[in-house]
């Protein structure tokens, strides 16, 4: 039996840190040790930040984003184009698009994708509020920024059908050669999509 070299409190801290993405038991031990060593500079502020986060983080009732206020900062931002609604699967996708900073639009987070193999149907997603939002006269375009996976595209097709009666233009992200991508290293599916979506120059 392995000898316990730290108290149960520290062991618990290591166990919890090891559950975070990107951290295994070894890196969790390193992180725990760094927190303990920098108790005043890291551990105490982290504790305070996490306590505040627990108390204040809410899901935006309008778009499904996470923030400390509802409606969220994205929904409250009046500088955004009110005529474009970008539909994403998860908050992480919203953050990715915001990092890219290519479009100042409003978002709608579905909270996942339809996956018949995993038993995830449309009822499990934030779809009714999307349909309601798309019915708003101010919305002119709905961009389906969903993953280029079988599940993501199945969800996109399903949403396209639901939005067909609304007076909005439904678009989806292009698929093809990524920036810096070499054709020789691309998979067949991506190449096929790139050829299908070719543009006149």
């Amino acid at each position: 039996m392995a000898k316990q070299i730290v108290g149960p409190e520290i062991e618990r801290l290591v166990q919890l840190l090891a559950k975070l993405p990107g951290l295994g038991p070894r890196s969790a031990r390193k992180a725990a040790l760094a927190l303990i060593k920098k108790r005043e500079d890291l551990l105490v502020p982290l504790n305070a930040a996490m306590t505040t986060a627990i108390e204040r983080i809410v899901i935006c009732g309008l778009c499904g984003n996470v923030d400390t206020m509802a409606p969220c900062a994205v929904c409250r931002d009046e500088a955004r184009d009110p005529s474009v609604l970008i539909v994403v699967e998860d908050v992480g996708d919203l953050w990715a698009l915001e990092r890219a900073g290519v479009m100042k639009a409003r978002y709608h987070v579905l909270g996942g994708h339809i996956s018949p193999l995993d038993g995830v149907g449309p009822d499990a997603l934030n779809i009714p509020s999307l349909i309601e939002r798309a019915g708003d006269e101010a919305i002119k375009e709905v961009i389906l920024a969903l993953n280029a996976t079988v599940e993501g595209q199945s969800t996109a097709h399903y949403l396209t059908e639901l939005l067909v009666d609304k007076s909005v233009t439904v678009t989806r992200l292009a698929q093809g050669v990524p920036i810096g991508g070499e054709l020789d290293y691309l998979d067949e599916g991506t190449l096929a999509a790139a050829i299908k979506s070719r543009k006149q120059v």
Binding site: S154, H157, A193
Partner: peptide, 12 residues
């Protein structure tokens, strides 16, 4: 999968 993605019926 990639070939079927743009066509709803085929993908389904």
């Amino acid at each position: 999968a990639g070939e079927a993605m743009s066509e709803p019926k085929t993908l389904t």
